[in-house]
Design a binder for these strands. Structure first.
Length: 380
DNA sequence: AATTCTATCAACCGCCAAGTC
DNA sequence: CGACTTGGCGGTTGATAGAAT
């Protein structure tokens, strides 16, 4: 079904995307956008061509992609649009929110086209027979003989996450303990290890599929929560926040009717080890992840990063004490040096809550999330 | 149980249009 | 105006899960 990993062309990886690659791409694009697909893989730390990254994002990873069964209305729309537009899949996809041109194209070739051909082969009398199934109904019946006409609504998508996806293996899932969990209402995905939290009674179906399969769910931010196994965490995260791990908060993943502000997070414990966090992060300004050229030219070493931790505010441009080792332009180095890339997030004191999610602020008042960059202070 | 066949769909390829220099 | 880059599109491939034999 999927191409094997490991294909190699000019040192670039091909074939099936690995979960780690997906996470890198998601992390980069959600944070910085797709400003240049060709350059993106280099800065996202991916050994893929830009085209492959774009395809993966557009057809698979971007938010609001609807997967799984097609509703009757959707199939009707596809058939109708195909009659008028032909194989202009992107134009057809534009009329079907959440569906990609590639998926529609596949669905057409594997289901609809054959069904239409089959029904056109049927003698006319049979077409007008008393059971009177429409052409579409016949297609649907063939595709799903057990329940052909019971189609989910747009919000009742039956999740089906494909093979190279982000789902943890069963063995990984089974290693999850309640001791490392957070409040059930929130669905979190551990950042540095593919470990999920305790299963929630409210979280029906596949925990992993929901955030990616529902219309109004998306990865909103990272946050920290208790996590005991630090083996797979980066040293910086470990140092800053042990015994915590980084998690992604998925808005509304398990209940689309619950507004974000009502999502709950585990009560903060007394003697929170985070309080010992001592990073000196002082300044802030809004969110453009990559500064304009004028911003770049006005940026000096004085608003560079800390040499010791290589941290950059995630949602803000943050200044920190300048390091003698941090030469050149703070922004250009992590983004434009081939050896530097975003590696993980860390938590550190931060006073401007404007750009943080309510859930995050509630749980970590006074803290913000920062991206860690490798090699920022090593570049000469 | 083993083998063969079929359906599926993620990913790749080549081409084209638009934008930039 | 032409060369080049980039993003986007549609056709096609090919591994594999599941069904059929």
């Amino acid at each position: 079904m999927v191409r094997p990993p490991g294909g190699d062309k000019n040192g670039l990886k091909r074939g099936t995307w690995m979960p780690e690659e997906d996470r890198k791409l998601i992390a980069y694009v959600t944070r910085y956008g797709c400003w240049n697909w060709r350059q993106l893989p280099k800065f996202a730390g991916l050994s893929r061509c830009g085209k492959s990254c774009r395809l993966r994002w557009m057809n698979y990873l971007r938010p609001n992609i609807k997967r799984g069964n097609y509703s009757r209305e959707e199939e009707e729309t596809i058939i109708k649009l195909h009659e008028s537009l032909g194989n202009r899949w992107s134009a057809i996809a534009a009329q079907l929110p959440g569906r990609t041109d590639n998926e529609i194209k596949n669905h057409w070739h594997t289901n609809l086209k054959k069904g239409l051909k089959k029904s056109s082969d049927v003698p006319r009398q049979e077409n007008n027979s008393s059971n009177n199934l429409s052409q579409l109904e016949k297609i649907q019946k063939r595709n799903d003989p057990n329940n052909s006409l019971l189609y989910p609504t747009d919000t009742e998508i039956i999740g089906r996450f494909p093979s190279s996806d982000l789902q943890p293996s069963s063995s990984r899932s089974s290693s999850i303990t309640t001791n490392t969990s957070v409040e059930p209402r929130i669905n979190m995905v551990e950042d540095d290890d593919f470990t999920s939290t305790e299963a929630s009674a409210e979280t029906s179906g596949n925990f992993w599929t929901q955030p990616f399969l529902t219309d109004n769910s998306y990865i909103a931010c990272d946050f920290l929560a208790p996590f005991m196994d630090t083996e797979d965490l980066s040293p910086v995260v470990d140092e800053f926040s042990f015994p915590y791990g980084l998690f992604e908060e998925i808005h509304g993943a398990n209940d689309l009717s619950v507004p974000l502000e009502k999502t709950q997070i585990r009560e903060r414990e007394p003697n929170d080890p985070l309080l010992s966090c001592t990073a000196q992060i002082m300044d802030s300004s809004p969110s453009s992840p990559q500064p304009s050229s004028s911003e770049l030219s006005s940026m000096t070493k004085d608003n560079a990063v800390a040499s010791s931790t290589n941290m950059v505010a995630d949602d803000v441009v943050t200044s920190l004490e300048a390091s003698a080792e941090t030469t050149g332009d703070f922004w250009t180095e992590p983004f434009f040096d081939g050896s530097s890339y975003i590696t993980s997030d860390v938590l550190a004191p931060f006073t401007n809550n404007e750009y943080l999610s309510p859930a995050f602020v509630e749980y970590f008042p006074g803290y913000g999330l920062y991206g860690e960059y490798e090699g920022v202070n090593m570049i000469n």
